[in-house]
Design a protein around this nucleic acid. Structure first.
Length: 156
DNA sequence: GCCAACGTTGGC
DNA sequence: GCCAACGTTGGC
């Protein structure tokens, strides 16, 4: 079964523009067990995901769409001494952290801003908007996914 | 820069 | 296993 996701990244770290340039990108740096487990147990090749720019001021919002092209594998950055995602407690023979690869599908014509979503009564129960939500990867129902991408002006 | 809301760590 | 201290996320 194909699933739909929303995945957050701070654009000054890795943006939709970066992914568009790269074509395929490695979604690394996840350091939350709940998110790791979702990626490990549920994320499959062919799953689609909305790209969300977090911590981007007035530009915070859903900016594009991507597709999972490689299932979870050990995140190499956890072993890179000096890297800001380095984890001294993770061992090569028992990696703690996983990443997936994603391919750029489209950059939406009109990003669906957080401020717009907050004003939309239809999104009242959307987990992304709940106070204190800190998961960087969220499952999104098929109908909500479609609603959001239409809201961002997706044409295909 | 502030701060609420978490998640993680480590002492006990 | 509890829980205080600390670190991080992320909106504002």
């Amino acid at each position: 079964m194909k699933r739909n996701w929303l995945m957050k990244s701070e654009p000054n770290e890795y943006s939709i523009t970066d992914l568009a340039r790269d074509g395929v990108g490695r979604w690394d740096g996840v350091r939350n067990y709940q998110v790791r487990n979702m990626m490990r147990d549920q994320m499959k090749v062919g799953d689609r995901a909305l790209f969300y720019h977090s911590n981007a001021g007035a530009l915070t919002g859903i900016v594009g769409e991507m597709e999972v092209v490689r299932t979870a594998y050990p995140d190499p950055t956890q072993f890179e001494v000096g890297h800001n995602h380095y984890d001294a407690k993770s061992k090569l023979e028992a990696p703690r952290w996983l990443c997936v690869d994603v391919a750029h599908r489209q950059t939406f014509p009109t990003p669906l801003l957080l401020s717009t979503m907050r004003d939309d009564p239809a999104l009242r129960d959307f987990a992304l908007l709940r106070r204190g939500n800190r998961l960087s990867v969220l499952p999104v129902s098929a109908s909500l996914y479609q609603y959001l991408r239409m809201g961002a002006g997706a044409t295909k």
